[in-house]
Design a protein around this nucleic acid. Structure first.
Length: 481
DNA sequence: AAAAAAC
């Protein structure tokens, strides 16, 4: 498992490519790059698994461009620029991001590239396609539109890349994907990359590959060791408060917050804005314009909390995001790995906090199994709902829970103070006494755990609920992953 | 249980 080369300059890449890489500030290769680039240069099919945030895009696009350059041509004629490489991604934002990276890598070559995805006007995309591109980056639906409109001709495609391959092969995408593949020559190179591969998807994937080389840098489904993972017990009513508490405690300004639903995402974003945070929502019911704006505002540091669905779970590469919160435990364990991969990128440290409601035990157990790491759900020491109630009655503003000093913008000025007038104290809804969360949950391994229902019935006791147990013990008083 | 991807 030694890497033959570690520096880009030692690779057999064209000067135009190494120059672009150098200009982007990269010198040494990551492990996935060191292993994948030489293989992709041979033109073999590849199934690649690597942790998120380790440079997968460069790992396939640099050697791909190198291969394409063998018959590079400078003709202006579209006919001389047939689509030769197709890169497919599961979300529009990701397509946009990967396309921008590829354009950067290719900027000193004669190769042309463009991107097509839904939610945007067809016409400019059509115009670009008609000019002729060697590299086409796309999401499936819009690509099919262009194929059927004869804007994109794919019968000369030599390379197909499925990024986030396990998602592209899942049931929601598979029909579109199969249709797209039916337009491509059988004789071609296929590259699959993802941070996660379930056994079923791995089997399915291999049916699309010919004698593939498997590259597995870290174990598939592994989470980055630089990310501190925490699981905190929280009822739905307490989740927002818990997030605010952790943000303050840790002095964290920016974070992704994942919700399992578009509605929940919209609501949470609005609630956080009411709390005084600079939050924005990113989900599939927003217009593409709003989606791109929200993402850009977050990148620029104009928005601190990006509240999103799993549309943002995969691949998005934003520097220096210190934390990810799972407001909801993801339905698929794989999505957990992708979500928390938004932080701790490129060797940086990160914090991932997952809020675990009583009914989430099964999902947490799935994650534990997938990442092969023991998970302990902690009860976070926070001022209890009752204490909060008392202090509110005493006239203290609920906004005192908001983060304060660390909210200075990176640039220095406090955009918080300037952009938002401080509002008066608002009444906080009194939380009912809660048998689980007003004291630490105590369970021992020998003791049967409760079936965690979303809300204990009024007057129910821990003992009564325990009697209805179904799932294995997960909840322990303290500790970490 | 949901989300994503085309109009």
């Amino acid at each position: 498992m030694t890497s033959p080369t570690l520096s880009f300059s030692e690779l057999a890449l064209a000067p135009s490519l190494t120059q672009a890489v150098a200009e982007m500030g990269y010198e040494t290769m990551t492990p996935i790059q060191a292993q994948a680039i030489p293989v992709v240069l041979t033109g073999q099919d590849v199934m690649g698994a690597a942790q998120t945030g380790t440079g997968k895009t460069a790992a396939f696009s640099l050697p791909l461009l190198q291969r394409l350059m063998r018959h590079e041509n400078s003709s202006a004629s579209p006919a001389r620029h047939p689509v030769r490489a197709l890169v497919l991604l599961p979300t529009r934002e990701l397509a946009d991001q990967v396309a921008q990276q590829i354009a950067q890598y290719a900027k000193h070559t004669k190769l042309r590239s463009t991107v097509v995805f839904g939610g945007m006007d067809m016409k400019p995309q059509t115009a670009e396609l008609k000019k002729g591109v060697e590299v086409l980056v796309a999401t499936p639906g819009r690509l099919l539109d262009h194929i059927e409109a004869k804007n994109a001709v794919l019968h000369q495609v030599e390379y197909v890349v499925l990024d986030e391959a396990d998602r592209m092969l899942d049931i929601g995408f598979l029909p579109d994907l199969q249709r797209i593949l039916s337009y491509l020559p059988k004789e071609r190179t296929t590259l699959l990359f993802s941070a996660t591969f379930s056994p079923e998807i791995k089997r399915l994937a291999s049916s699309y590959l010919q004698n593939p080389v498997t590259i597995e840098v870290a174990r598939a489904n592994a989470t980055a060791s630089t990310v501190e993972q925490r699981f905190y017990a929280a009822h739905d009513d307490d989740k927002r408060r818990t997030i605010c508490h952790v943000l303050q405690e840790r002095g964290i300004r920016q974070a992704f917050i994942f919700s399992n639903s578009k509605l929940g995402c919209a609501r949470l974003s609005r609630a956080l804005e009411r709390d005084g945070y600079r939050a924005a929502a990113l989900h599939g019911d927003k217009s593409q314009d709003e989606r791109l704006k929200a993402l850009e505002a977050f990148k620029q540091g104009e928005v601190d909390l990006l509240v999103c669905t799993d549309v943002a779970a995969r691949g998005l590469d934003i520097k220096d995001v210190p934390a990810v919160f799972n407001y909801d435990v993801p339905f698929n364990a794989e999505d957990y790995v992708h979500r928390i991969g938004r932080t701790g990128r490129a060797g940086a440290s990160g914090l991932a906090v997952t809020l675990v409601a009583p009914s989430d035990s099964r999902l947490v157990a799935d994650i534990e199994k997938l990442i092969k790491t023991r998970i302990t759900v902690e009860t976070l020491a926070m001022p209890s709902a009752r204490a909060r109630q008392r202090s509110d009655a005493g006239g203290e503003s609920p906004r005192s829970e908001r983060p304060s000093g660390h909210q200075e913008a990176r640039n220095g000025a406090s955009h918080f103070a300037s952009s938002r007038p401080v509002r008066g104290a608002r009444p906080v809804r009194a939380a009912p006494a809660d048998p689980f969360f007003d004291r630490p949950y105590e369970a021992s391994a020998s003791e049967a755990p409760p079936t965690w229902e979303s809300k204990p019935a009024p007057g129910s006791t821990l003992r009564q609920i325990k009697a209805k147990r179904k799932v294995p013990a997960l909840f322990k008083p303290a500790g970490s992953v």
